[in-house]
Amino acid sequence: MSDIDTFTLLPLQIDPQSKALSTASSSRSLQAELAALNTLHRALLTVETPNQVPPPPVPVNPKRSANINKLRDSGNDAYRKGKHNDAIKFYSLGLQMALGRPLWEPQQLVREEVASLYANRAQAHMALQGWPEGALDAEASVEAKRVGNSKAWWRRGKCLLEMGRFAEAREWASKGLEMEGEDGELAALLKEIDVKLGKEKKSSS
C-alpha cells in the first residue's frame, strides 16, 4: 500500500561530472525513467529564467516560431518553383525544429505548426508520386490537427487511392467528411473512390 508518508528508497547514483543519474537496479522501467529524467534535466539547464524552472507555457519565445515560419515559406517557394525535393528538405527541417520545441511550451502551438508542415510535405511527396510517404505525412498532419485540416484528410485519401487501397481510402475519406462536415473536395474524392471500388468489384466478379 502506498502511503502518503512513505516511499521506496531506490538505489540511485549520480555521476559527479555529468550530473547524470544512474541506478544499480536492473528494473527496466526505472532505467527508462532515469533516462527521461536526465534528458529533461539537460533541457532545463538551457532555460534562461532566474531559478532555472520552466517558465509558464505562455507567452512563448517568438524566436523559434519565426524560424519555423521562415522554413515553411522557403519550402512553399521551392514547391511553387517545382523543386519538390528542396521543398521536402525545407519542410523536414521545419518539422525538426517544431518537434524540438521544449516540452513545456504549449502543445496547441506545436500541433498547429506540425500539422501545416506535414500537410505541405505530403503535397510535395505527392507531386513526386511518393504515395506512401505522402500518405503517412498526411496521416501525421491529421493526427496533430483533426478538425479544420481538410487538405490533409484529402491528401491521404488520394494517396491511398493511388496505391490501390480503395477500401482503406473509402474509410478514411468518409471519416474525414464526418470530421470536416460538408467539404466539396472530400466528397468528390469519395465519389471517385466509390467509382474505382465499383470497377474493382465488377472485374473480380
Binding site: Q13, I14, P16, K19, L21, E33, A36, L37, L40, H41, L44, L45, N51, Q52, V53, P54
Partner: peptide
C-alpha cells in the same frame, strides 16, 4: 553525494 538543485527540480517536474 550532493545532488544539485537542478536535478531535484527536474525530478519534481517529472
Amino acid at each position: 553525494p550532493k545532488i544539485p538543485d537542478s536535478v531535484v527540480r527536474a525530478a519534481l517536474l517529472r
